Amino acid sequence: MKILVPDVPFDLDFPSLLPDAGASFAPGGTDVVVTYAMNDPIPEEHADAEVLVTWSNPPRVLSDTARRLTGLRWVQTLSAGPDVALRSGFGPDVVISSGQSLHDDTVTEHALALILASVRRIDATLAAQREHHWAKEIAFAQADPVTGREYTLDGARVTIWGFGSIALRLAPLLTALGAQVTGVASRAGQRSGYPVVAPDGLDALLTETDLLISLLPAGPATRHVLGDRLLGLLPPTARFVNVGRGATVDEVALADALRSGRLAGAALDVMETEPLPADSPLWDVPNLILTPHVAGGRPRGAARFLAEQLTAWRDGGELRNVASR
């Protein structure tokens, strides 16, 4: 069996971690692990591969791979979401699995950084610094009894939309800062002590939300799901942070809400078009913090994760994070 692994700037020496490194993934055959350049088309000599590991491969390269590598049986992406692989045209019999959990800690840290930067108006102070302006007006606003609670997470009502593994890392940190956290997921209930509402309870929840955090994956059901109607349910003092996928947000509606003051602030690590074009209006929207899709950084523990996945694949076990097709 031939396994294609991308040339990445982190350790992917997973064969050495396999409990039976000399065993073959195919009865009577010999396993071959080949490193490929993830930004280039797969060489024709490796078009017979059965397993493909991806990282940040360009969509055009993955589409080409899906068209030419007809013998693929499994695609394992190291990204938290498999949306790019799912859109690439791999056949229905190809198993696609994601690297969910490999980015939980870094996305959690970045989400918290964006939240605090927005709530504490760090963007405004940085802009003032560039102008050599001592922005004491921020302190005066915090002292105002009417607006003071808008500058803190203490007592804030926080909604996390997409209550999976990242949310379960982030929620306790927000709780430690005094926030009241509620999740939104496909099913209502309790998760690790946090109340979770189903989608039919979202509207009522948004009307009482001070901070909305999106961890939603991309897909037909979530495209532009946060648009005019849902943004209109948030209080005008509310803030929004997106570290999920950019396609889940109607960016025109978000920009309009920020410009009109119907939303107090937002922070995005993901945009619908990446890299964000130089002429995008998002660059100049007030009260909006942008970071260039850096929350995930690199997948942590990728080698061991791949070793476990390949062992499960070889032994007929259950793969983790298999995407619905």
Results as ranks from 00 to 15, higher is better:
residue 5 V to T: 14
residue 6 P to A: 02
residue 8 V to D: 01
residue 8 V to E: 06
residue 10 F to M: 06
residue 13 D to F: 04
residue 18 L to K: 04
residue 29 G to Y: 02
residue 31 D to K: 03
residue 31 D to T: 15
residue 39 N to W: 14
residue 40 D to W: 05
residue 43 P to C: 03
residue 48 D to C: 03
residue 48 D to T: 00
residue 50 E to W: 01
residue 53 V to H: 07
residue 55 W to A: 14
residue 58 P to M: 03
residue 75 V to C: 01
residue 76 Q to K: 04
residue 76 Q to A: 07
residue 77 T to F: 09
residue 78 L to A: 08
residue 87 R to M: 10
residue 87 R to F: 02
residue 93 D to T: 14
residue 93 D to L: 00
residue 93 D to I: 00
residue 99 G to F: 07
residue 100 Q to H: 13
residue 102 L to H: 06
residue 102 L to V: 10
residue 111 A to H: 02
residue 117 A to Y: 08
residue 124 A to L: 14
residue 130 R to D: 13
residue 137 E to H: 15
residue 144 D to T: 09
residue 148 G to T: 12
residue 152 T to I: 07
residue 153 L to T: 11
residue 154 D to P: 00
residue 156 A to P: 06
residue 157 R to Q: 14
residue 157 R to Y: 00
residue 160 I to N: 01
residue 161 W to D: 11
residue 166 I to G: 07
residue 167 A to C: 11
residue 169 R to P: 01
residue 171 A to Q: 12
residue 172 P to T: 10
residue 173 L to I: 09
residue 178 G to D: 11
residue 184 V to K: 11
residue 189 G to H: 08
residue 195 P to K: 12
residue 196 V to P: 03
residue 198 A to K: 08
residue 199 P to H: 04
residue 202 L to V: 15
residue 205 L to M: 13
residue 209 T to L: 04
residue 213 I to P: 01
residue 214 S to T: 15
residue 216 L to D: 07
residue 217 P to A: 02
residue 218 A to Q: 13
residue 221 A to V: 11
residue 224 H to W: 00
residue 230 L to Y: 08
residue 233 L to A: 10
residue 233 L to I: 04
residue 234 L to G: 10
residue 236 P to T: 09
residue 238 A to R: 07
residue 239 R to T: 12
residue 246 G to D: 01
residue 251 E to P: 00
residue 253 A to L: 11
residue 254 L to A: 01
residue 255 A to L: 13
residue 264 A to H: 13
residue 268 L to I: 13
residue 270 V to R: 06
residue 280 S to E: 12
residue 281 P to S: 10
residue 282 L to P: 04
residue 282 L to A: 04
residue 288 L to S: 01
residue 288 L to H: 02
residue 288 L to W: 01
residue 288 L to E: 02
residue 290 L to P: 08
residue 296 G to M: 05
residue 296 G to F: 05
residue 298 R to G: 09
residue 304 R to A: 15
residue 308 E to S: 04
residue 314 R to P: 07
residue 319 L to Q: 09
residue 320 R to W: 12
residue 320 R to E: 15
residue 325 R to W: 10
